[in-house]
């Protein structure tokens, strides 16, 4: 009997399927499991879900306490709401800055577009942390902006800029702007300029042609860009930690604190589970839009 080797196709599929199944999908199940277990002293600091009782009976001990705390403690609820709000506002700000940029690049002479796009992406290739650091240098009490204001005599003492919501938004918008510009550029550059000529020919002034033709046709790019900013920003840890004030208790920061400082792994897991549930819809929507774009 001839031995049948698995086809190349199966191998090509199996490698990523198994890897992602093991290291991406399975961990979520574990997170969900731990979110439901009790905290314990020791390593790892949580009690197993399944345990043998003294009578030798296998029992499942589900601890819904963590989840209950999350939905009843206003600290956590506010952290979630604040995260969603900050991420949404950041998405809108990125859109307001990124759309004109993407539009201008898409309308630039063809031989310049690659360079212009490269210039948008270049900061993204340099260190994220060091770019956040630059904003500390700009906004600190003894930073560049305050020096400038003091030097010009506009203020008599430094204005608090760092550790404020302003710094938080500046940092998020700064770091996530390329993620907005790229998908917008992709849809805008695909837009056939003849459609705008047709609109003008039918009596639409430039502004109306933009509103009735360009804007609706770039909607997939707007949605994709917004999601690429919004979803990661909801769980952002570094920027609120380094630029935001003590009030900027976003959920990523709370989760970090629970995990690293309080060593409450079940609580951190519960926070992650709820965060994931909050993001399932936006992620599904994003994938839907992406799938349509690919077709």
């Amino acid at each position: 009997m001839r031995l049948r080797l698995p086809s190349g196709r199966t191998l090509v599929l199996a490698l990523p399927f198994l890897w992602l199944g093991l290291f991406f999908l399975a961990p979520f199940l574990i997170v969900a499991k731990i979110a439901l277990s009790e905290g314990a002293l020791g390593i790892p600091p949580y009690a197993p879900l399944l345990r043998w009782t003294d009578e030798g009976v296998l029992t499942i001990v589900l601890n819904l306490g963590n989840l209950a705390t999350l939905v009843s403690d206003s600290f956590y609820i506010e952290a979630y709401l604040r995260s969603l709000r900050v991420a949404a506002i950041s998405g809108v700000l990125c859109l307001l800055i990124g759309y004109p940029m993407a539009y201008a690049i898409a309308r630039a002479p063809e031989h310049r577009r690659n360079l212009l796009l490269m210039l948008v992406v270049l900061p993204f290739w340099t260190s994220f942390l060091l770019r956040v650091m630059a904003w500390i240098g700009l906004l600190a009490d003894n930073g560049v902006v305050n020096n400038l204001l003091l030097g010009l005599g506009l203020v008599s003492q430094p204005v608090a800029l760092l550790y404020t919501d302003f710094a938080l938004y500046a940092g998020i918008v700064y770091c996530y702007l390329p993620f907005m510009v790229l998908p917008l550029y992709a849809t805008l550059s695909k837009l056939d300029p003849v459609l705008l000529e047709a609109a003008a020919d039918l009596g639409a002034r430039p502004w109306r042609a933009f509103l009735t033709v360009t804007l609706p046709l770039s909607l997939p790019g707007i949605i994709a860009g917004f999601m690429l900013v919004f979803i990661p920003a909801v769980g952002e840890f570094v920027i609120p930690e380094l630029l935001g004030g003590p009030g900027a208790q976003l959920i990523g920061r709370v989760l970090w604190t629970e995990f690293f400082q309080n060593r409450d792994w079940p609580m951190a897991s519960a926070l992650a589970v709820v965060l994931l549930l909050l993001l399932v819809l936006p992620i599904a929507w994003f994938q839907h839009v992406q799938g349509k774009g690919a077709r």
Partner: peptide, 20 residues
Amino acid sequence: VPPYERPVNMMFQSYALFPH
């Protein structure tokens, strides 16, 4: 006179129908 004010209309080679 800009195109949007001309009493002239055009049928484009690619038709330029608005896809949305």
